[in-house]
Design a binder for these strands. Structure first.
Lengths: 255, 255
DNA sequence: TTGTATGCGTTATCAG
DNA sequence: CTGATAACGCATACAA
């Protein structure tokens, strides 16, 4: 692996000059720059991001911390879509993406802070952690800038993005009402999820709190089979139900 | 950010000793080790993987190079499943995963070699590149260890994994035959894809090359809408077709 | 316009 | 058992 020193030696200049030439500084004669560029290409040189990051104290790296990245979730393509979006954006901004996947086993070995600091990520995007996940506390205590997906918490170093969960749910349920349904049940996720609470609120709002019936709401844990089981029980108990509002695609597929 | 020097200073020992104590070397007294460990925890110290990698010449990092990582592909969860699998395995082995996503724009800026060498990845897994992708040549010329997914090429530094495409296709088509279908069409991907060629071979094999009719095979480019369009044309031209064998889930969904 | 010297945070070599 | 010291590959203040 050719280093900057190899280039310097072959070009008969100092490392400093090579560094500046390749990084586009203006205080280098075009002649030397061209020569250096040529030799760099010749030697197949590419600067070590490791060394650069070390001295610059900038890694241009953000961590994508996905909790519960499991193949069973592949039908629900939300995580994948998030990944694509983050990746696109990071790419445009010249940032790298490192995958920091955690499971309960790993969480005991290394703290969130360790995980992030040793990699020197400049920021973190967290997807899939629950509001009662122990990691969440660590995240909030840490000073590493981070963005939570679908958890509405803000502080100096913490932000979040989410969708209009309530509005969306409201629209969906209104649609069912317009179709003439009188008894609409809801298959929700779980109470630890912010999105579930919001969507429930939307469901209630659409029903105007009048025809709202608590018994019509069950939790499917965002899982296909759980949702199916719960739905079966629900329909057996309340045969009058003519429509279902599911809080996630995967759970809808369970029907 | 606490460095190893901070720990050393506070512990009243040299950096060397701290390094060895924390890395589990035996030539350090248990008393010093405990003290150092305590102080390290106290200072919230975690070693910089950057610095460590630089001196050790080992990054413990593998690159996941996904070509065409786009949100439109999210319905087809194959890429996501690959990601999960790779991630699981890498995690167990103590490797990091960095996402190297490429598109035609990026490919012109940086070569495969640059992309990998500057990050010092120790190996690469390539998913989604086509057999006629210019990157493929670079990959083969490079000496960076890599694994191709669904492209059967081997060399000193290149390996691959794939599924039994031919056998799977054969089984699928045989199933349709057993159901009594006489005119089975195939919606394939594209001819640049190894898997498409294999699956076509399986399709032919199942039909025993007897009832094989070339006109019954069209390419859907692995895209939902293309597959739909091609299928419509096909069915219009050959109304006798009673079953379709699709080379990918996504294309089947297009029906 | 170019070069010298220093430091980034580690680990490794070699003496004590 | 412990500690100087030299790398690793690069960028930058400071000189020349």
């Amino acid at each position: 692996m050719a280093t900057i020193r190899d280039v310097a030696k072959k070009a008969g200049v100092s490392v400093t000059t090579v560094s500046r030439a390749l990084n586009g500084y203006s205080d280098v004669s075009e002649k030397t720059r061209e020569k250096i560029k040529m030799i760099a290409k010749e030697l197949n040189y590419s600067p070590s991001l490791l060394a650069r990051s070390l001295v610059m104290k900038k890694t241009k790296t953000i961590g994508l911390l996905v909790s519960g990245l499991r193949i069973e979730g592949s039908k629900d393509n939300f995580t994948f879509e998030v990944l694509c979006g983050v990746n696109d954006c990071a790419g445009e901004l010249g940032y790298e993406l490192v995958l920091i996947s955690t499971d309960s086993k790993k969480q005991q070995e290394k703290t969130y802070n360790q995980l992030c600091k040793e990699r020197k990520v400049e920021g973190v995007i967290l997807q899939g952690i629950k509001t009662d996940d122990p990691y969440l506390d660590e995240v909030l205590k840490s000073d590493i800038p981070c963005i939570l997906i679908d958890i509405p918490i803000e502080s100096d170093s913490v932000g979040y993005v989410t969708t209009d969960n309530k509005g969306g749910a409201e629209t969906a349920v209104e649609h069912l009402l317009n179709l003439g349904h009188k008894h609409i049940a809801m298959i929700n996720g779980h109470s630890q999820a912010f999105v579930s609470r919001e969507r429930l609120a939307g469901y209630q709002a659409a029903l105007n709190c009048i025809s709202f019936n608590e018994s019509y709401v069950v939790n499917g844990a965002f899982l296909e089979d759980t949702a199916e089981r719960e739905t079966t029980k629900l329909l057996k108990a309340y045969p009058e139900i003519s429509a279902l509002f599911c809080a996630s695609d995967l759970m809808a597929m369970g029907q």
